[in-house]
Amino acid sequence: MFEARLLQGSILKKALEGIRELITSGNWECSSAGISMQGMDPSHVALTVLMLQNDLFDQFRCDRNVTLGLNHATFSKILKCAANDDIITLKAEDQPDECNLLFQSANDDKTSDFIIKLTDIDQETLGIPDTEYAATVKVPSVEFQRICRDLSQFGDTIIISVKKGCVEFSGTGEIGSAKIALKESGNVDDDEKVSVEMDKDTPCSLSFASRYLNYFTKATSLSDTVTLQLCPEHPLVVSYDIGDNGSLKYYLAPKIEE
């Protein structure tokens, strides 16, 4: 059987906020290592990958690998019934056709019990190749959310450019253009700071659909910082760490100049 108890139930609520608008349903693969889920949007532009390692849970048991085929709209509706400080337990039998969700209030005076029916999802798992990225940028997640929102007013494309010690976001459209630059800060240990790492100091600039970047920022509350990894002609990686034991990552195909 499978049983996973998450003291910080809000993590699951926040993760699903970052997933549900991009992927309507997905296979949540449960193994002794933890829970993982990946899915592409219907137009094959963005890949979403969630990993919740077993250490994230205060109790985790998975005797045999279990696949939970979940409709994300339904899953989200049920998770909205949980308070932010609820403890959430997921339970399923081996080869399940339903999953049990138990919410316990922080002071244990309320318990809510839900059953979600599972669906068979015909989906292939993709292998993600190791890539040497030309640039790795860490910025406060709220700042990235704000920049994506602000630049979306100018057009449907956001250009991300990394130069030595600086990351620049720009957009151009009929009403005008905008350019927002963030300089690398001195102390990179602070979550409020910006760090820019480059391989071989070669500037890198790529164009992306602002619509998708805005979808990704729905995961902002998962982490104080977001990491962007860029490589010419490769998908952008946007990563939100979930403490030390999980992550929500997005891969976004760049726009190609004609």
Partner: peptide, 14 residues
Amino acid sequence: GATQGRLDSFFTLK
């Protein structure tokens, strides 16, 4: 203008 690329060529089936 720029056209939207797709991810298919970047990832392999497991």
